[in-house]
Design a protein around this nucleic acid. Structure first.
Length: 933
RNA sequence: GCCGGUGUGGCGGAAUUGGCAGACGCAAGGGACUUAAAAUCCCUCGGGGGGUGACCUCCAUGUGAGUUCGAGUCUCACCACCGGCACCA
């Protein structure tokens, strides 16, 4: 940029005001009963006793990566900052905090490579992120900055884990309760059994289930972190492996997580994603008796009405019940195709045991990737065993196949190939019988029909419509003890442990009897320092290397897993409320003020406009967290709510996902594509105000949009025009010379600059007032609707008009600065200061000057009456096509408008000789004349 | 495959409950200022056709139907792109 003259001295203005805001603590958010300095602008506006209503506007806090920010990161931050500043102007007590989600894999991987402690890497990255974010002039309350890797912070993450550990989910009140309230059944007597029973009911419990193990990363991953059989981080292969893991009982909350979505102000697509993830489906559990034994096997189906069409049964390969069923020899007359597994090149197996061993091995070797990729070709093998269909006692073969998942439903299905596409595919592969039991309404071939129709070939169900058939068969099953209505969820319990170093250690110790939790008083439990961050040779997590840390004096051993990165972000929005509280994760009164539904008793009597919502008023972040973070955080919040620690059942009342900003090539910004643009270069060339403005002007917040640095120049030119509207050219020339030559203090340099001589205390003209009020109206309405791009265009329109004025009334300009302030705060502050110092404002506006700075100036209000024109240009259409425009008085009646339209010469000519069928008059819009052609 | 979203000039995007399509900005072209350039200011800027001219006229919001006095906006079908889920019985 050295080759171009600056539009205005943003390089002096921006650091100046950032320093001012920091030293004044302009953006401190005040907690109830917190003492406020008398000269703070908040106090000057609101007094020192009452607190106005709160507005909590939150950004998803970043993971501070080594690469620093790119221009996509601050998109949401800019939007929330504009709204934070707008709400302050409206008179709210605004909480707008920032912090760091700093545990995580990249710092650890760097440590593995270099031996540098992840804490060091993390701190370096944080200070770079902080520098970048601060350079953009966001109005964060930095006194509330948090860091998930800070022991003062993760102490409370561990504390919440203890709460989870010490709670169970009581299905009766449908909420979590302390584990002591869990009744131990009478048949359980021994201490060991009692202990087991408790441990099995905790919200945090141990499971041996197969997990997603990533050998490359040396850790297990949650289902959510595995994408197409590869790790979300790094894209390494993931295999299934049984391991001892901590789980969190999120499934207990499935119903509440689903139901409580309804009142939230979230986009429907986001809610839908959560609903799909939770995956509630209604159906029935049906008991099949297993051939030779008197055992029963339940299966889950959403289509119990098709029970008569069940021609075989399939178990998941991992299902252990199979072992008890398989015969020594193949039954008579089994086709060889049933014995091969459907795997190319495989020979028929000699007996069922061999077949099952073979198939299990085959299935377990498949990675998740292959399991989905090879989905086109179904595989499976006959077990030699049979089951009895409860409705007709028909003997049907039992298979194992990997298209049936061990983790969903009962791990086994009844297969109805005629009316389920997967079963049909499988049946065709192995020549299994297909029996039609639902007639499609179109009366076509009903094989493969999966919708609602009419039952056929189905005993007592025959002739019934699908919904009736479902009800009837469920009633029959319940009466006969063969099944019941049930509900299944796709949601699984949350795999909560990781074999990593750089995460919160579990406050848990083990002995030969099992696990016990540490006391609350012993928290935080710090991770030990290590030389080597690799997992051990035995596949133990890196913490197992810290022998001193590991072994406790009483012979117990510490848990060596750590918590996943999601843990810290599950509750950070609560810590912001009371970030340095040593006694509690958050003071209840403070929590209630910022998050609660009940207004503080010290509430001001005249609340500003807008609704007072529950929880966080606005949460902005990327859609990539639509299921994981948002579901986990909602889950934790509900547990805390059940335990009486927070006052709302949902944390995020309104949530908006910002769209991605793509690179200039239209591709996703990434280091490998080389299309990353850093805010640093933009701030250097055009200043933070231009950067903020462009981020918002580029398009609607929620949309995906490409970056174009040329576009920054457009908004930069706009700010240049704002500057020139206020500033005297001659004084600026002097200033520029001093800038080039002198070593003078920047703040003094800015003093040289004087207002333009056309700015005066002259009374505004009608036109000028109208321009202003149109701008106020548009800006206000657009901010309320988060339409930042059109709000900015309204500001541009005002400036384009104001540039043509020969008299520039200070009274008008000061109001404009209040509108500009949320978007371009540095420039607005500087010009506001000049205007105040000029003493051009009339006495009733002088009160404006008693509050220092712009941040707490009341938001301008518009007067609709001023916007009404005396007359307007009314379009006249004939058959919907624009034919003429005539000027009409604003208050004209419908009759007058019709007369005026028909009086137009052009219209007269066009309707001459035609029959006017109808004249539609829409006041304030148009007149349309329908004629016959 | 299922669910959700989006299709408007050369580009990013505007268009209250259906009511003047293209606000605002970028790019482009022309002009003023300048020795020159940059910056700034002014003008033009969806496409076709017509007029010396203020203008006139036809066609245009992914495609095709429909509802309506009137459709970018509502309905139906289809196409393209983006995002999510993906053997969940």
């Amino acid at each position: 940029m050295s080759f171009k003259r600056r539009q205005y001295p943003f390089h002096l203005i921006e650091p100046k005001w950032q320093r001012h805001w920091a030293s004044e603590e302009t953006f401190r958010a005040w907690n109830p009963r917190e003492e406020r300095p008398a000269d703070h602008p908040f106090t000057l506006r609101h007094g020192s006793t009452a607190l106005p209503p709160k507005y909590y506007v939150l950004d998803m806090f970043p993971y501070p990566s080594g690469q620093g920010l790119h221009v996509g990161h601050p998109e949401g931050y800019t939007a929330t900052d504009i709204l934070a500043r707008y709400r302050r102007a409206l008179g709210y007590n605004v909480l707008h905090p920032m912090g760091w989600d700093a545990f995580g894999l990249p710092a650890e991987q760097y440590a593995v490579k270099t031996g540098q402690h992840p804490r060091k890497t993390t701190e370096e990255n944080i200070s770079n992120f902080r520098r970048q974010i601060k350079s953009l002039g966001f109005s964060y309350d930095w006194s509330r900055e948090i860091n998930t890797t800070d022991p003062d912070y993760f102490k409370w993450t561990q504390w919440i884990f203890l709460k989870l550990y010490q709670s169970w989910f009581n299905p009766e009140p449908n909420k979590a309760e302390p584990i002591d309230s869990l009744k131990i059944p009478d048949e359980i007597s021994s201490p060991a059994e009692t202990r087991n029973y408790r441990d099995e009911h905790r919200l945090a419990y141990i499971s041996e289930a197969p997990v997603n193990w990533c050998p490359e990363l040396g850790t297990v991953l949650a289902n959510e972190e595995v994408i197409d059989g590869k790790s979300e981080v790094g894209g390494f292969p993931v295999i299934r492996k049984p391991m001892r893991q901590w789980m969190l009982r999120i499934t207990a909350y499935a119903d509440r997580l689903l139901e409580d979505l309804v009142p939230l102000d979230w986009s429907s697509s986001l809610k839908e994603m959560q609903r799909n993830w939770i995956g509630r489906s209604e159906g029935a559990e049906v008991q099949f008796s297993l051939g030779s034994s008197d055992r029963q096997m339940p299966v889950f189906t959403t289509r119990p009405d098709t029970l008569f069409g069940a021609t075989y049964m399939v178990f998941a390969p991992e299902h252990s019940l199979i072992d008890e069923l398989i015969p020594e020899e193949w039954p008579e007359g089994i086709p060889d195709g049933w014995k091969t597994g459907g795997i190319s090149g495989s020979e028929p197996k000699t007996n069922p045991k061999e077949a099952i061993r073979f198939y299990r091995e085959y299935a377990s070797k498949k990675s998740d990737l292959e399991r989905t990729d090879l989905a086109k070709e179904k595989t499976g093998i006959f077990t030699g065993a049979y089951a009895l269909n409860p409705v007709n006692q028909e003997k049907i073969p039992i298979w194992i196949a990997d298209y049936v998942l061990i983790s969903y439903g009962t791990g086994a299905i009844m297969a109805v190939p005629a009316h389920d596409s997967r079963d049909l595919e499988f049946a065709r592969q192995f020549n299994l019988p297909v029996r039609e039991v639902v007639k499609s309404p179109e009366n076509e071939d009903s094989i493969g029909f999966t919708g609602n129709g009419t039952s056929i070939n189905s005993g007592m169900l025959t002739g019934m419509a699908t919904p009736d058939a479902k009800k009837t068969i469920i009633a029959w099953l319940e009466e006969n003890g063969k099944g019941r209505k049930t509900i299944q969820f796709k949601l699984r319990d949350w795999l909560f442990s990781r074999q990593r170093y750089w995460g919160e250690p579990f406050p848990i110790a083990w002995d030969e009897n099992g696990h016990e939790c540490l006391t609350e008083e012993s928290l935080p439990l710090l991770p030990p320092d290590l030389e080597d961050y690799h997992p051990t040779k035995e596949g133990q997590p890196p913490l197992a290397r810290a022998t001193e840390w590991l072994n406790l004096p009483d012979g117990k051993r510490r848990e060596t897993n750590t918590m996943p990165q999601w843990a810290g972000s599950c509750w950070y929005y609560l810590r912001y409320l009371d970030p340095s509280n040593q006694q509690a994760l958050c003071d209840p009164a403070v929590e209630n003020y910022w998050m609660g539904t009940i207004p503080e008793s010290e509430e001001s009597s005249s609340p500003p406009k807008g609704i007072v919502s529950k929880g966080i008023d606005l949460y902005v972040g990327g859609a990539e967290h639509a299921v994981l973070h948002l579901l986990y955080a909602r889950f934790w919040h509900k547990v805390l709510f059940d335990l009486g620690l927070v006052s709302t059942s949902e944390p995020f009342f309104k949530l908006v996902n910002q769209g991605l900003i793509m690179g200039e090539d239209g591709q996703k910004m990434s280091k490998s594509r080389g299309n990353v643009i850093s805010p640093d270069e933009i701030v250097l060339d055009y200043g933070a105000d231009s950067f903020r403005l462009y981020e918002m002007f580029i398009g609607p917040l929620e949309m995906v949009k490409p970056w174009n640095t040329k576009g920054v120049e457009g908004v930069y030119r706009f700010l240049g025009r704002v500057w020139r509207l206020f500033i005297d050219e001659k004084a600026e020339k002097e200033f520029n010379q001093k800038c080039v030559s002198g070593q003078a203090d920047p703040d003094q340099l800015l003093e040289v600059i004087q207002l333009d001589f056309r700015i005066s205390n002259a009374p505004p003209t009608k036109e000028q007032t109208k321009s202003l009020h149109a701008c106020i109206q548009k800006t206000t309405e657009d901010l309320d609707g988060m339409r930042f791009n059109t709000a900015i265009s309204a500001l541009m329109i005002f400036i384009n008009e104001a540039m043509t004025w020969s008299e520039r009334p200070a009274k008008i300009l000061v109001e404009f600065l209040k509108l500009l302030q949320p978007f371009a705060p540095h420039l607005a502050e500087e010009l506001f200061k000049k205007l105040i110092e000029s003493r051009l404002l009339s006495p009733e506006n002088e009160s404006t000057g008693s509050i220092s700075g712009l941040s707490y100036q009341p938001w301008p209000e518009f007067n609709r009456d001023l916007l009404i024109e005396d007359e307007w240009l009314m379009p006249i259409q004939i058959n919907g096509k624009l034919r003429d425009r005539v000027t009409v008085p604003t208050g004209a009646s419908k009759e007058d408008l019709e007369t005026a339209a028909l009086a137009s010469e052009k219209i007269q000519k066009l309707i001459e000789g035609k029959q006017v069928r109808k004249v539609i008059v829409v006041p304030r819009k148009l007149v349309n004349i329908a004629i016959t052609s």
